[in-house]
């Protein structure tokens, strides 16, 4: 039997409380942005951008520039390039982004390995470490959370219109390209603020996992946004706590816990569906056949 005191004991450390606050905020904003990424089917953007900024962090370390400023510049440039490439059409966006972002990551690894300056700090950047989270990190993620929330309120409708029906959005005066770019820049900022807590190599899953779990639980867009944010925050909180207990990399622990949540939710929805099929039987099946797209009806009329 574990004493309740043992569970609460880590909260007496300042670094732990700091880590938990950062985890909640990081999990929340990643969960929020994850919804748009998942609905656009562009999970690779999160993956690409998070890897790319690692190069920026290393380069700014080498040049003795503040890591945030260096990574931010690098991240902004990466997001503009990624945004351009994903619209060019000739080369498939995922392939181009794969190369560009991994090259950015490789620059970081190249510099670290050639100068033999691989330290615990960089390990935290790669995999996340509660001990790597500074007061500055906490401040950064707090500011970023406010910025993301403000943009979310301002742009929510435009983003929804753009990802749901880009063509019509354009006709109705939504500046879809500007929306895309703003979103990429927001994502870059969130990635940078999340680096120390989750680590660049594991961040993509932390962005996507809450959103796909939430997607299984609701069909309502507003609920989806809220649920994904909450799942993201809780997952990161619990993951960070467990990483302290097991003395493991926080990013890995958060991602594993997030994947676990997704597995449980998947199982739940599967069982739920099977149960409903058994209890409602043919009624449900008939309805599904009926609602399956107008084209079938159209074809039937023609035959």
């Amino acid at each position: 039997m574990i004493e309740p005191n043992t569970l609460l004991q880590p909260f007496q450390y300042e670094f732990f409380i700091r880590g938990m606050i950062v985890a909640i905020l990081v999990g929340g904003v990643n969960g929020l942005l994850g919804v748009y990424i998942v609905l656009r089917g562009m999970s690779y953007i999160g993956h690409g951008l998070s890897h790319a900024v690692f190069g920026g962090a290393v380069v700014s370390h080498m040049l003795s520039i503040n890591m945030y400023i260096g990574a931010m510049l690098w991240g902004l440039i990466s997001s503009i390039v990624i945004n351009r490439v994903s619209r060019s059409g000739k080369v498939k966006a995922d392939a181009a982004i794969g190369v560009i972002s991994t090259a950015g990551f490789a620059i970081g690894i190249f510099l670290l390995s050639s100068t033999r300056s691989f330290t615990r700090n960089f390990e935290a950047l790669l995999f996340g470490n509660i001990l790597g989270i500074t007061y500055l990190d906490m401040l950064a993620i707090a500011v970023v959370s406010i910025v993301v929330l403000a943009f979310f309120l301002l742009l929510n409708r435009m983003m929804l219109f753009t990802i749901f029906d880009r063509e019509t959005a354009k006709v109705y005066g939504v500046r879809t390209d500007a929306v895309d770019l703003t979103f990429s820049i927001l994502l870059a900022i969130v990635v940078i603020a999340s680096m120390n807590a989750i680590g660049v190599t594991l961040l993509a899953a932390a962005i996507v996992a809450p959103a796909i779990s939430a997607r299984l639980l609701t069909n309502n867009f507003t609920k989806l946004i809220m649920l994904s944010t909450v799942i993201g925050a809780i997952t990161a909180f619990v993951g960070m706590y467990l990483s302290f207990l097991f003395d493991s990399a926080s990013g890995a622990t958060i991602v594993l816990f997030g994947a676990g949540v997704f597995a449980v939710v998947s199982l739940y929805t599967l069982l739920h569906r099977v149960y409903h099929r058994h209890s409602h039987g043919s009624v449900v099946r008939h309805k599904h056949m009926h609602i399956h797209r107008g084209e079938h009806e159209h074809h039937e009329h023609h035959h």
Binding site: V174, N220, G294
Partner: peptide
Amino acid sequence: VIGYMPQVESIDWDFPITVEEVVALGLWN
């Protein structure tokens, strides 16, 4: 002021959005 209706093929019908929300997009601004 243009009212536009795209072809159904360009729409992701699995997108989590209600009838009300789709129509409200027309008044996004």
